[in-house]
């Protein structure tokens, strides 16, 4: 039977993959993909917890089922989209400047 732990495990794997992606890509867009993976992992967690824990607790207290997990997930999706747009804009600018998308070159800000 599929339980909460299965979703948590899936989310953990996605999170790990996202982290690994960020650490092993030189292409800035690849890193962006890693970020998306991590955000998705978080979303899976939120939605799963919402179903398994929070909704029922609210019902048990006589209220309507809670949907806070879903709300958070929704905002995350929105913010992810916004973040992707900004990031891609930055990458385009970066590309215009360096003719490459290799983040190894992005060290102008170093101290």
């Amino acid at each position: 039977m599929i339980g909460l732990s299965h979703f948590l495990a899936l989310s953990a794997i996605l999170f790990g993959c996202g982290a690994a992606t960020i650490l092993t890509k030189r292409n800035a867009i690849g890193i962006l993909m890693g970020v998306e993976l991590i955000l998705n992992a978080a979303n899976v967690n939120l939605v799963a917890f919402n179903l398994y824990n929070w909704a029922g607790e609210a019902v048990a207290q006589g209220a309507a089922p809670a949907v806070d997990g879903l709300m958070f997930a929704m905002f995350i999706i929105v913010l992810a989209a916004a973040e992707a747009a900004i990031a891609l804009a930055i990458f385009l600018n970066f590309y215009n400047h360096f003719s490459t998308i290799d983040i190894e070159r992005a060290r102008m800000l170093r101290g």
Binding site: L4, Y52, N53, W54, G56, E57, V59
Partner: peptide, 8 residues
């Protein structure tokens, strides 16, 4: 908690 709380 290993089953959906709505239908616990």
């Amino acid at each position: 908690h290993d089953s959906p709380s709505l239908i616990a």
